[in-house]
């Protein structure tokens, strides 16, 4: 038995572009779930709209592909009505941080027992590459043709501030670390948030000097800074470059949670 059994084999190959990192994140999530010994009938995947949100359609469990940004609100209903179900939410940066930002912070506040995996490609991929709330400053997109002028969201800091029990960030390069982080997220009672930075060769890379998929993945790798190392650097008063992504386990705590199986 391997995580491949969790795929709807009749629906593969999926619709993601060649080189898209979303498939990698689904692999890592399913590999973590496979280790949890969960039954397929007790697991529900919920998603909103966007590239990332097509993921539940390829997974052989009950799955709910909902309206734009509302995945976490739907998942709240599923989990509260039947706490015996394990509910995992796939979402994207535009889906979760823009239109669904309110539902996200309130789910963190309630600390409801969900695991939310955000595939952050820093752009709206499905609609053709518009700027999103996580598009880095200066990056090009079809709606920021002169470079993004807005400051992006730090989703992990947002989740921590709003009260999530477990928060971590990895990239699509760090597959083993991501798999372990998802597993910890699944095990943690309360709201778990895992941000996975993914490459988007079609909408983001093409406009931002990552013509090859591997170049973008290499950029994500080389611009990842472990949280422990960041903390050390802060202690020593060293300068931390602004374009680094802080990866690793950002938050783990035991605030009282809602919707935990009794």
């Amino acid at each position: 038995m391997s995580y491949e059994d969790w795929y709807r084999q009749d629906r593969l190959p999926h619709i993601f572009c060649a080189g898209c990192g979303n498939g990698t994140i689904i692999n890592c999530t399913l590999a973590a779930i496979e280790q949890m010994d969960w039954k397929k009938e007790d697991t529900v995947f919920v998603s909103g709209i966007g590239c990332s949100s097509r993921a539940p359609g390829y997974i052989l469990t009950d799955s709910l592909h909902t309206t734009h940004g509302r995945a976490i609100a739907f998942a709240t209903g599923v989990k509260m009505a039947n706490p015996d179900l394990h509910v995992v939410v796939f979402t994207g940066d535009g889906d979760m941080a823009a239109i669904g930002g309110n539902h996200f912070i309130h789910a963190c506040r309630r600390n409801i027992d969900l695991t939310v995996i955000c595939m952050n490609n820093q752009i709206y991929g499905m609609t053709g590459g518009q700027g999103s709330p996580t598009t880095p400053k200066g990056c090009l997109s079809s709606t920021t043709p002169f470079g993004c002028a807005e400051t992006p969201f730090d989703l992990c800091e947002l989740a921590t501030a709003a009260g999530a029990n477990y928060v971590s960030r990895w990239t699509s390069y760090h597959v083993k670390e991501l798999e372990k982080a998802v597993k910890v997220g699944l095990e943690t009672p309360g709201f778990s948030f895992i941000e996975a930075l993914v490459q988007c060769p079609t909408a983001f890379g093409r406009r931002n000097k990552f013509r090859q998929v591997a170049d973008h993945v290499e950029y994500l790798r080389s611009h990842s800074l472990l949280k422990a190392k960041r903390d050390r650097m802060l202690e020593n008063g060293e300068h931390i470059p602004e374009d680094m992504y802080i990866v690793g386990e950002i938050t783990r705590r035991k605030r009282p949670a809602m919707g935990v199986k009794p």
């Binding site: 919920v46 909902t66 609100a73 709240t76 209903g77 509260m80 009505a81 039947n82 309110n102 309130h106």
Partner: peptide
Amino acid sequence: VFIQMEDEIAGIASIIGAAWTGARA
């Protein structure tokens, strides 16, 4: 289960989610 959601959008979203688990929502 009674849950006060953050807005009406989330309110109807939660009852649709609950309805799929068999609840009368």
